[in-house]
Design a protein around this nucleic acid. Structure first.
Lengths: 206, 206
DNA sequence: CCACTCACATACGTGGCGTATGTCAATCAC
DNA sequence: GTGATTGACATACGCCACGTATGTGAGTGG
């Protein structure tokens, strides 16, 4: 029994490296994270890292993917729980802002991510969150809730607005109050996407 | 005559370092820009850089400030030329997107900036562009054109949306078409800020 | 004219990344 | 079961880039 099967050991080391790197990247940032330090912290050396991830950027990319996947899941849950529709969409957007406030996401995804992987990575590569937004918007458009706008374009604009709102909130003196203001303005902006009240049939404004 | 006055020499040196650094940061990015390389390119050494700017980040910050100031001026011109009002505001927003597409601005301000200086720097520190937007919005709000939303909140959301739109456009296969879609969606979002047509008196929709 | 300041260059130490090489355990052939 | 092979990981090395400490020579004040 002394040793577990090979594949399991490998998965464990990958996991250890991933979480150690994630913690380092999320706290001190990519540039300040020493590979020697955080691999040692995981009981390993840089050798393991280079074997599994190629280089520092490779590990970073893996961390980004992991976080993105987690966020995607969380967003999907929230959208579903809110029962879809316009309200569900708005709720998921608000939740997106909330998540973007978390320091780890802030630092890794929105701060270092574009600089390290190239901003094209974040845009062209499939970001799960973005795909979520696009899906929602396409449904809403098909249902006639939102007007004739390109779903991806709207999703990206919403995405950008959310992220900026998040970092504004995160760095403000009174996050509570700032958040209220940001969400209010955000809801107002989103209203611009809906078909006008005059053009609609008999829907409640809220 | 052999030599110019001291102060002028200093200003020249600072300028040379600033533009050399700006070019390097704008093309290869902050991390890949070697101080030895681009100072030599300016006919100087790292010694001069450390003397004037403290360190690499110091020069970078100076470059960011310079670009921000330029953008602010350009934005102000556009806003004024459009004659203010809602239309002027929308035009300046569109121009903001256009400027954010420029590779130098994209790379230095939106990509490396937050990672190098900390994203708090970009938010808390006075960004000239942002101040412009806030001013415009405050006027529009006072004139009853936009609804009861916090100007700064709206400005930050618009800012974020613009930047993301810009990098989406810049990295798309067909920037022309992408730009059209983005601007259309952007205008729709902005409409959300205006007081509703039903609530207004007798204004043209456009 | 002399002492001093200051703008900049030169020289050095350090740390972190990437690569080349080594080693030992797990799997496979027979 | 034993030898060969693969592959996961560690060790050792070189390099590059940053930051600092020190030097130097041209302006500047008295």
């Amino acid at each position: 029994m002394a040793h577990k099967p090979r594949s399991q050991m490998i998965a464990e080391t990958r996991g250890k490296l991933l979480s150690a790197g994630r913690r380092a990247f999320g706290t001190v940032g990519y540039a300040e994270a020493s590979m020697d330090d955080f691999t040692a912290e995981a009981g390993l050396t840089r050798g393991a890292l280079y074997h599994h991830f190629g280089d520092k950027k490779g590990l970073f990319a893996a961390v980004v993917s992991q976080i993105d996947a987690e966020v995607t899941v969380r967003l999907a849950e929230i959208t579903e729980r809110a029962g879809g529709g316009w309200r569900g969409f708005v709720e998921s957007c608000a939740a997106y802002i909330e998540m973007a406030i978390e320091p780890e996401i802030q630092r890794i995804i929105h701060c270092d991510g574009p600089a390290v992987l190239g901003e094209s990575w974040m845009t062209t590569s499939q970001s799960g969150c973005l795909a979520c937004l696009v899906d929602d918007l396409e449904r809403l458009k098909a249902d006639g809730v939102v007007g004739d706008i390109d779903p991806e374009a709207a999703a990206r604009l919403i995405n950008g607005a959310s992220l900026h709102a998040a970092q504004w909130i995160a760095n403000s003196d009174d996050p509570e109050a700032t958040s209220k203001k940001a969400v209010a303005a955000f809801r107002a902006l989103l209203e611009g996407l809906r078909v006008r009240a005059a053009e609609r049939v008999g829907e409640t404004v809220n």
